[in-house]
Amino acid sequence: MNEIIEGFRTAIELIITLNPEVIEISIRSIIISLSATLIASFIAIPTGSLITFSEFRGKQALVNIIQTLYALPTVLVGLFVFLLISRAGPFGFMRLLFTPEGMVIAQTVLILPILIGLTISSLKGIDTTILDALRSLGATKMQFLRSVVSEARYAIMAAVVLGFGRAISEVGAAIMIGGNIRGHTRVLTTAISLETSMGYIAVSIALGIILLLIALVINLLLAIVQNR
């Protein structure tokens, strides 16, 4: 019990005194996961809209596959991206292994299915009268898609926040692709894993608190936007 209390005390100290290493790791985590989320959104929202409003054979099967991939294990993404970007792999020449960019790619792959899938769900939830109205007003395909995405924006934003949460909290791909290099690819989750294995519980707790605080801030921001 003492260990836990002591851990929390030191943790709060580390945060209040703005321990440079803790701050650096936190900022890196946010940047990497935010980049992945934004890139994934950029791909997923148009893709999800297209899938929703196009009719083609195997559409339901595709949606099922996407939804299955919500449960994509992070280590599997790690392995897959590792094989692609390791120097012996097809994209090895780009030297992306053990870099923050490589981690962004892995996290993007990881959260793409969630973002596409939830975009589809969000758009399905739109009142059909709006869709009919848009069509009858003679909206072009682009105008149509923009309007419906705008109509479903809160649900889509919630999906984006969920994707960010999954990206910043995953450890499997981050450690395989980043290698947990101090000052380079060490992020909150891999640092927690390392510090715990080295017996530095206080630092782990501090990093864990920060991770939750980041999630809290992002959710508060979302709530503010949604209530506006």
């Binding site: 935010l34 980049s35 989320t37 934004l38 890139i39 959104s41 923050p100 960019e101 962004v104």
Partner: peptide
């Protein structure tokens, strides 16, 4: 958000 994302990605 997307524009910001691309900028952040650029920074990374």
């Amino acid at each position: 958000l997307l524009v910001a994302g691309l900028m952040v990605a650029g920074c990374v």
